[in-house]
């Protein structure tokens, strides 16, 4: 049986420094797998080993069924890679780079031309194809890099921090591209990122890596569920505040630190489904509900739970999470549907 990506006990040390310390990995056919971790956690080192750029010092890995050390050439013929810094020769045009990439992959001239045009179209760079890459924006470069990595129609695609440094619009455009690629061609994607939101949005399954080890693994939903109950934050009229606080924390879960003294925050053991009961209980008390928000646990909470630290760039991601997952209890379900809709 062969998975697109499979690794066991994968290790890499540089002198005394152990960058990757025994990573086990199983990526399934056709999924988008997110590799999440802070800078220097070992993401890129792992990807460099999986893509044959770096020899492991321990363990083994197979990509597309081939061993990355003994069958490096077969691995290279099966994978597409877009590396972190999207190194692209600024003096060449998009078309020239595509042709070079095709030659590097042993694709003939006529086929290369056809593929090149098709890929430029796909990433929306047809008009810019004959312009030098030096004049491209950051987002255009990443999209060209993506096109380059697809020249030989690889079965497995590695994207190393594909949106680092991009503005939000370009980031969303690239996400769309990755999603449709995965959906239309069934391309298996391994994506590393330090952005929680990116992992949450794109990946069907996530592995969190910290200090060279995978500390947590699963779908974003199960990971978040492991962290525990969502937090309900609400505000009632001042007269019923203390009473409501006592009743809610007694009946629905434990009280949590609230953002303001007027607010009440409770960890809802019953999950989003318990919100209706909360409203009913407040009604029975005669309390007037002024505002209510439900905060789903974020991947940042997952990361914090697993490592005891918060992730860099978490703020931006959790804020987004609040906006989407907060105000209405059904948000999580809606988001899940949309993700499936995007990929099917």
């Amino acid at each position: 049986m062969s998975l697109p990506i499979q690794a066991a006990g994968l290790r890499r040390s540089f002198g005394d420094l152990v960058a990757v310390d025994g990573v086990d990995l199983e990526v399934r056919e056709g999924e988008i797998f997110g590799f999440l971790g802070p800078n220097g956690a070992g993401k890129s080192t792992t990807v460099r080993m999986l893509t044959t750029l770096l020899r492991p010092t321990g363990g083994w890995a197979r990509v597309a069924g081939h061993d990355v050390v003994t069958d490096a050439d077969l691995v290279r013929r099966s994978i597409g890679v877009a590396l972190q810094d999207a190194a692209i020769d600024p003096l060449m045009t998009g078309n020239e780079l595509l042709r070079l990439q095709a030659t590097l992959h042993g694709i003939g001239r006529i086929e290369a031309k056809r593929r090149g045009a098709e890929l430029l179209e796909r990433v929306g760079l047809t008009a810019a194809g004959d312009r030098r890459v030096g004049g491209y924006s950051g987002g255009m470069r990443r999209r060209l890099d993506l096109a380059l990595s697809l020249v030989h129609a690889p079965a497995v695609l590695f994207l190393d921090e594909p949106t680092t440094g991009l503005d939000p619009m370009s980031r969303i455009a690239l996400w769309e591209e990755v999603r449709s690629l995965n959906a239309e061609n069934g391309t298996t994607v391994l994506l590393t990122t330090q952005y929680l939101e990116e992992a949450d949005q794109l990946a069907g399954r996530i592995a969190i890596i910290d200090r060279g080890r995978i500390v947590s693994e699963g779908t974003p939903q199960t990971l978040k569920a492991q962290v525990g109950a969502p937090t309900l934050v609400l505000r009632v009229d001042a007269g019923h505040r203390d009473e409501a606080r006592a009743v809610l924390s007694g009946r629905f879960g434990t009280e949590r630190p609230a953002p303001t003294p007027e607010a009440i925050a409770v960890g809802l053991d019953g999950g989003a489904g318990a919100v209706a009961d909360v409203v009913r209980v407040l009604d029975e008390l005669g309390a007037e509900l002024e505002a209510m928000e439900l905060h789903e646990p974020s991947l940042d909470d997952v990361f914090a739970e697993a490592t005891g630290r918060r992730l860099e760039g978490a703020e931006e991601a959790t804020t987004d999470g609040d906006d989407e997952g907060g105000t209405e209890p059904a948000a999580e379900g809606r988001r899940g549907r949309r993700r499936r809709g995007g990929t099917s």
Partner: peptide, 13 residues
């Protein structure tokens, strides 16, 4: 230095 060499190494050439 800028990583273009990785592109060459990644190719099955």
């Amino acid at each position: 230095e800028n990583g273009f060499f990785d592109r060459l190494l990644l190719a099955p050439s």
